[in-house]
Design a protein around this nucleic acid. Structure first.
Lengths: 222, 222, 222, 222
DNA sequence: CATGAATGAGTATTCATTCAT
DNA sequence: CATGAATGAATACTCATTCAT
């Protein structure tokens, strides 16, 4: 409705289409939260989304697709936001970069904890390994690019691997907060923990590389 | 086979029962790996396990139960092994403790990477959030107990939270290695990375607690 | 067929719905006749009815429901017809009333003996006691009302019990004719037998009440 | 146990066999009463009867057979008892014959009303039409033979048909008492009703046969 | 574009029956 | 004789998907 008012004549059908698609995804996500993926039927989705059963198939090829798009679009949006935050502002140190990226991640997920918890549970259930890998790599890519342009990035570190591990640590701690811990911690407290962990990792990794510069003890890292 | 040879007549039914249950779980895991949970039918499992369809229901109440037992038994076994490794040997420092625990985790999972990759993919698909949480906490418990008795555990650190985060980091990096990375790294290299990350986290956390910005970087941990 | 011709376009869905439901019931009854209730599968019914398997579940909640509706609708229809015959025409004596009611019963069942034999066999197999009781009472109700307004109903008789027994006798003799006897007798001959039995019962009951008005010989009847 | 003591050595296996068979039938009947035929499994029967699952198949070819034997043996026993009562004592009139036969029927069924109600419900569910017919005819046979030797049997009446209808009436009224009526009536009251109905039927049938136009036997009912 | 009646492939589960002990 | 572990045939039912309107 909003969008229709803003762009009244240009592409009403596209707005409608977009709204319907989002309505379907929202309905789907709500239903998955309360019933679990397997117990959500296409009819349920259609009813809650306020469209006809057949309409679902005008927007998505099938049920799996709704799930995949729901998960992917939201996660890619998060990756894009992280990327945007990274791009904004001037040059940064590694620590500042970690702060900015982790901040977006932590605040976004904890900001709407219930929604994201549902999404992550859904993602665990339905995302096939390849898709999981792709989504993961999209985030790692953002981290790698951000680290690569950090003003004090230590050239000794393996950029790819470091970015992967840094994101893995962030991701793990945030997911813990949402999925494992009994009480969702304060976003800023979590952010500090996350920064500690990542910065601690970078520091140690650097020490290891410097102390054993040409050693064969970590062949996979050099 | 083993058991039947060892105790050929005494307890055939018990051995048989155990063998059958394991055969069912193994068949199930293999099938999930290649087809995905939803595409595995009870008949598939029975056929591959070499038992009758009805026999499945003598050992498990239903399909979900096979999945749950398969995942849980293997993960609890891993937790028990970790616990055993922790209990063995004399007093240790925190760093040594991290080394021992991480070593079991890394070597076990990378030791039979294909098996564990399948199990983790399965776990993602079928474990409901509560069970996931319980399994996770079983591991955290092991870490907490191990850290609590470390000879140089810094009392300033929140034991519970530190153990949770330490395990989360280990778990995340190992799962990355299995599920995300293109090539499974060498176990020892991964172990070093993991130790770096955890020790780095501990060190930083300690620094934050002590609020000593100019203090020596890792006096208590090394 | 009829309805579609009469109202070809107006209410196709309603006619269709009614036709489909009837087609399912008819198919079900045919199959029960030749194979017995337990041996009739939903797929059999769907095939013979010329609809898809899932369609059965659009019209009935399950197999039991098809059976119940099939039996109940036909028996309630018979009760309604009996009631209608009773209501039509002017005042009657008890004997005339018996004649009219018995006539409907006998002619309806013997008129399409094969159909009704099948229905009664089905009813024996699937009707649970409570439903049997309800159906039975629906008929007794018709008889009671009819007797109550008979111009010569003897007030001494227990209306409820008399109606119950009168219907029981009619029902028993007609069911015998369909289910027990080797050759189905002529409808009019059977009707005479039935009338004899009912009228004989009424007469005797009346005599007993009059001859022993305050006797303890029939405590349950007074 | 009892029987084994009485005939300790002669044919213990036969007594045992008989006992086991009866135990199975009793268990079956009890289970059918409380769960319905379809819900009773062979394992249920074996457990309640206190024998192994396989043992059922030493005594009966299958589940249907247990049901059939349970129903048939009890109904044939009733027919035999009726026959015995008929044979005992000296010559009788038709009315006396009706009294004796009806008496056995009514008192036997109402004497253990719950047991017989269960049996009749079971019989409705499981007896196929042919068996129903056979059992029915066994009773009719008893009635026919008894009427045939009544000292005042009117030769004008069709013996076969009269016996069939007489039994049908008795059977119908007794089954009503057990299956339809809310409160099971007193056995003697029911017996009087039954005798009234049968004797009334005989009287009327006789009148019809004799074609006595001037007869004023029941003016109020014609 | 939108709809929902109709479809039928696909599956978990039950339970009568067998047979090795 | 007795047992019960193992079996697999048989079936009700669900639900994603289609297509005529």
């Amino acid at each position: 409705m909003n969008l229709m008012t803003v762009k009244p004549r240009r592409k009403p059908s596209q707005s409608r289409a977009w709204m319907t698609s989002v309505a379907i995804q929202d309905a789907f996500l709500m239903l998955v939260v309360e019933r679990g993926y397997e117990r959500v039927s296409m009819r349920n989705i259609a009813t809650l989304a306020g469209v006809g059963l057949g309409t679902l198939y005008l927007y998505f090829p099938g049920k799996d697709s709704i799930a995949a798009v729901t998960v992917r679009s939201r996660l890619r949006k998060l990756a894009a936001d992280t990327q945007a935050a990274s791009a904004a502002g001037g040059p940064r140190t590694v620590a500042e970069t970690v702060h900015v990226l982790a901040r977006v991640h932590v605040h976004t997920l904890l900001g709407e904890a219930a929604q994201w918890r549902a999404l992550l549970v859904l993602e665990r259930r339905i995302t096939p390994p390849e898709v999981y890998r792709d989504l993961y790599k999209a985030f790692v890519q953002v981290f790698r690019d951000a680290c690569a342009v950090a003003i004090d990035w230590p050239g000794e570190l393996d950029l790819e691997r470091s970015a992967l591990n840094a994101f893995a640590v962030i991701d793990a701690l945030v997911k813990n907060a949402l999925l494992v811990q009994d009480f969702c911690p304060d976003a800023d407290a979590l952010l500090q923990e996350v920064e500690s962990a990542v910065n601690g990792y970078f520091q140690r990794a650097l020490e290891r590389c410097r102390v054993v510069p040409a050693s064969a003890r970590c062949p996979g890292l050099q």
